[in-house]
Structures are given as structure tokens and as C-alpha cells.
Computed example of a mutant assay.
Amino acid sequence: MSTEPTTAPKPTIVLVHGAFADSSSWNGVIEPLRAQGYSVVAAANPLRGLDSDAAYVAAVVDGIEGPCVLVGHSYGGSVITVAAAAQDTVTALVYIAAFIPAEGESALELTDRFPGSTLGPTTRPGEYPLPDGSSGTELTIRQEEFHGQFAADVSAAAAALMAVTQRPVALDALRQPATAASWRIVPAYALLTTEDRNIPIETQRFMAERAAAHSVEVPASHAVSVSAPGAVVDLIVLAAQK
């Protein structure tokens, strides 16, 4: 009989981007995680509605064998908070400049909890068709304002590409309240961005403290996964090793 100690499998890291971004926003995070032996999935967040987006991410988790760590950026934090509620394979939640809602709270409500966000005036609304023949409103950040608003510490060239490739978010997704708060039962970790112009730092601190999250503050913009990927990787690995 072998007496060698067994090693628990490393969790799969599931990365969930937020509004005005896409999965490429995790590019600087993915390779360092893979280099440390983690399997990584960067989910394509639909950005259409909190319930449906969370159901999609939950389905992604269902298709992964073994434990998972869910990582959400921005609105992606709301998504993982709801998605993990019925997923017993999720071992940690990692919030990267993200919303950490309680039951009944929306992203828009939390944005306005404390002053400091300048996002609203930089967005441009547009209409998109719905299956019932009606239309909904989606938001993008004006390309000429994207650098200063979303990614002030990213190079101008990189921010220009991010502005062009940004994914629009349905306004209803930002308005929809969370139906669950999985951070009440799953350990939470939070990277807080002190130079954030989307989610005020006081809002981030409030949410992280309420969730009893292990928190780290960095002097970064909302696009911290692009401008400071090392700090993001360090927190994810910490969460994955617990």
C-alpha cells in the first residue's frame, strides 16, 4: 500500500468579465495562472440580464469536473455571486474591482451607494431587438472617453483597442437585483482599485467589508486585469490554495 500523501486537485479558474469588456481583458492573467498549473476557462458573459447571465456561468461550471474558483470583474462580480448559489463545487469567489451584491441589490444601485462614479455621462445608449418584437436599451462607453473613464493606467494604444472591442451591456442587466448572495457561504476575496472611476473605492470597501472578504487595495483603474495583472493573479492563487 502506498504511503505517499494524496494531493487535492487544483481548482479550475473560471474568469467572468464585466460590462464594456470581453474575455480578452483576462489575457495578462491567463498565462501566469496556466504556468502555475491551473486550468483556466474565460467565460463569455452574455451581458443581457443578471439571471440569464448567471445561469449561463452556472452551466459553464456544471461542465467542469472538480472544484472551481469563480473570478468576476465589475458586473461579472454580480454574475458570480448569483451563479455560485447552487454550485457546490465552487470553493472561492474572487472579486476584481467588482460588485458584491446582497440579495435585492443591483449593480446600478451599488454604483450610486457612495459618490465618485463618473461612468454615467460617458456612456452612449442604443437600442437592440428583443424576441417579443420590443426593444431594450444597451450601453457602451464612448470610444473617445474610454481611456480616461475605464482604463486610465493602460497605454493609449491598448485602451483604444479595448474601446473598439468593448461588449455592450443591457441596461436591464445593471438594473436587475441579485436573487442570491453566495458570498454568505463561500469564502470571498476582493481586489479593490483606488483609482477606479466606474465603481467608487468607498463602494468597493463597503461591499468587501460586508462580505468579510480578504481584501487587497491597489492604485489602479477599473481595468486592473490589464494594467496590473500580477496583483490579480496573486489574489486568485491565494484563493485557489485555501
Rank of each mutant, 00 (worst) to 15 (best):
181 A>Q: 02
104 G>S: 10
107 A>V: 11
123 T>G: 12
82 V>E: 12
100 I>F: 05
209 E>D: 13
66 G>W: 01
242 K>L: 13
147 H>Y: 01
56 Y>E: 10
49 G>R: 11
130 L>C: 06
226 V>I: 13
37 G>T: 06
199 I>Y: 02
65 E>S: 14
62 D>R: 05
198 N>P: 06
74 S>H: 08
240 A>P: 01
144 E>T: 11
99 F>K: 11
71 V>W: 01
221 S>I: 00
11 P>W: 01
203 T>Y: 07
116 G>W: 05
17 H>S: 14
101 P>Y: 03
170 A>R: 09
34 R>M: 03
197 R>N: 15
198 N>D: 13
52 S>A: 14
86 A>M: 13
181 A>Y: 03
38 Y>N: 01
156 A>G: 10
171 L>C: 12
124 R>L: 14
125 P>A: 07
76 G>L: 03
151 A>L: 08
214 H>Q: 13
3 T>R: 15
18 G>W: 03
162 M>Y: 02
12 T>F: 02
183 W>C: 12
71 V>H: 00
2 S>R: 06
219 P>K: 04
199 I>H: 05
16 V>T: 12
172 D>R: 14
227 S>Q: 04
147 H>A: 09
241 Q>D: 15
204 Q>W: 07
232 V>M: 00
2 S>E: 12
225 S>M: 10
193 T>K: 01
132 D>L: 05
174 L>P: 05
16 V>I: 11
45 N>S: 11
216 V>T: 11
6 T>C: 13
177 P>W: 04
191 L>G: 03
65 E>H: 09
2 S>V: 08
27 N>I: 11
213 A>E: 05
228 A>L: 10
185 I>V: 14
220 A>T: 03
31 E>A: 10
175 R>G: 13
223 A>K: 05
56 Y>M: 12
14 V>Q: 00
51 D>I: 13
224 V>L: 03
234 D>C: 09
23 S>P: 08
215 S>V: 12
105 E>C: 06
152 A>R: 02
41 V>M: 00
120 G>D: 14
199 I>C: 06
161 L>P: 05
226 V>Q: 05
64 I>T: 06
202 E>M: 15
174 L>T: 10
235 L>D: 03
110 L>V: 13
118 T>H: 07
174 L>I: 12
170 A>K: 08
153 D>T: 01
196 D>M: 04
38 Y>M: 06
21 A>D: 03
192 L>A: 02
183 W>L: 09
21 A>S: 15
95 Y>I: 05
172 D>C: 12
178 A>T: 12
211 A>C: 09
178 A>N: 14
64 I>A: 06
145 E>N: 09
135 S>G: 03
131 P>G: 03
115 P>I: 11
98 A>H: 11
37 G>D: 02
140 T>S: 12
140 T>F: 10
182 S>C: 14
24 S>R: 14
61 V>K: 00
207 M>E: 14
148 G>I: 02
45 N>G: 08
101 P>Q: 07
102 A>Q: 15
184 R>D: 15
84 A>I: 07
74 S>P: 08
205 R>F: 08
87 Q>E: 03
131 P>A: 06
200 P>T: 04
121 P>E: 08
64 I>Q: 02
58 A>H: 05
223 A>Q: 01
175 R>M: 15
125 P>T: 09
96 I>E: 05
89 T>W: 00
52 S>L: 14
144 E>D: 15
28 G>E: 01
40 V>R: 00
95 Y>M: 07
73 H>M: 11
176 Q>G: 03
211 A>T: 07
114 F>I: 08
